[in-house]
């Protein structure tokens, strides 16, 4: 990855994340979160993890965000003052937890030897592509085919269950 691309992504993603927690408007907050998700997806692509990038966009930036926006809409949180709160312990806890996370990450950086970004990007290239994942998933010699097929039963049960629970009259 070129350093220029990295810095652009870094500034945009961190900036969007900061904007997400500082803005008073819930809709703006959600949009800033989408920006962060998309930046992370681009990071995945630069690390040759195409599949995870696609999943990140489809599941997080797509499905999860729609859920967020639905909740904002249903609770009618459009007004900027709706999220204001006073005398809450939340910022203190958030700062301290964030600090602990930062410390842990710094400690991990010094405790474990991490690959340099250039080496990491190329060594695992075949693993993260959609093709590689598909070949692994559908290879009868691998143990993943069976659980993958079984998820279809799981989804069927969940669909039938949702319909039964939701309908008052059948």
């Amino acid at each position: 990855m070129s350093p220029l691309l990295f810095w652009i992504l870094a500034v945009v993603s961190v900036g969007a994340a900061v904007l997400m927690i500082t803005t008073k408007n819930p809709v703006r907050s959600a949009l800033a979160l989408v920006t962060t998700f998309l930046c992370v997806a681009v990071y995945y692509i630069t690390l040759s993890a195409q599949f995870i990038a696609a999943v990140q966009v489809i599941v997080y930036a797509g499905a999860i965000m729609v859920l967020f926006l639905f909740v904002i809409m249903l609770l009618n949180l459009g007004a900027p003052q709706a999220l204001e709160e006073k005398g809450s312990l939340q910022p203190v806890i958030a700062w301290s937890l964030g600090g602990i996370l930062l410390l842990t990450l710094t400690a991990a950086r010094s405790l474990f030897t991490l690959n340099s970004p250039q080496a990491g990007a190329n060594v695992y290239e075949p693993l993260g592509t959609v093709r590689a994942i598909g070949l692994n998933l559908f290879d009868p010699a691998q143990p993943w085919l069976f659980p993958f097929e079984m998820t279809s039963i799981l989804l069927l049960v969940a669909t039938v269950g949702a319909i039964i629970m939701a309908k008052r009259q059948v």
Partner: peptide, 26 residues
Amino acid sequence: NDLIVLFIAIEILSVALYVLAGFART
């Protein structure tokens, strides 16, 4: 024989049981 299969099997069992537990919907 694989923990992933075990997880999916448990979920198939459980999701069906969640619905069955609430089967008397009224």
